[in-house]
């Protein structure tokens, strides 16, 4: 208690309270107006910027991943399409080749048939012509022969007799 005796330790002095009120209020006002306002808004602004940048990086990363998967999908689809196209092309070409072959065979057959027919007709024509010619020739020969044979009487008689003998023999 000796420390507290007769002194103003526990009695606030009005003068100091007055000055504290004045100086502290002024300090609060001045710092509020000229320091904290700027400091706090700058801090907030910077935090907003950092947050925005981080969010954008995250978004970009997600977008990149999406793009990549899209790309992969596209490539896959393209590959599939290519396979289909190749397959279809092959089918078409196979079909075309088969068709061409068939047609060629058909054509060939037809040509052969036509040729054969033409040949047959030609032969028939030729044969009939030959027959005609042979018959005409043989008649001519026969006429000539007969004319010559029958120029003398004796020969005629012998020929007739010969013909008769032949007929007897049969």
């Amino acid at each position: 208690m000796i420390l507290l005796e007769g002194n103003s330790l526990l009695n606030p002095s009005p003068g100091l309270i007055f000055w504290q009120l004045v100086v502290f209020s002024a300090l609060v006002f001045i710092l509020w107006k000229f320091a904290w306002k700027g400091i706090l808004s700058a801090l907030k602004e910077r935090e907003g910027e950092i947050e925005g940048a981080l969010r954008m990086a995250e978004e970009t990363r997600a977008e990149m991943a999406k793009l990549k998967s899209d790309n992969d999908k596209l490539v896959m689809e393209a590959k599939k399409e290519r396979d289909i196209i190749i397959k279809e092309a092959k089918e078409v070409s196979d079909k075309m080749i088969a068709e061409a072959k068939d047609r060629a065979v058909e054509q060939g057959n037809k040509i052969m048939e036509d040729a054969r027919e033409a040949m047959t007709q030609e032969r028939v024509k030729m044969m009939s012509q030959i027959k005609n010619e042979v018959s005409a020739l043989s008649i001519e020969i026969a006429e000539k022969v007969i004319r010559k044979e029958l120029s003398d009487k004796k020969a005629q008689e012998s020929f007739v007799s010969e013909l008769v003998s032949d007929a007897k023999l049969n």
């Binding site: 000229f34 320091a35 700058a42």
Partner: peptide
């Protein structure tokens, strides 16, 4: 305090 924090504020 005024000198310190106004200089801090100016820094921003």
């Amino acid at each position: 305090l005024i000198v310190i924090f106004i200089s801090v504020s100016k820094g921003y």
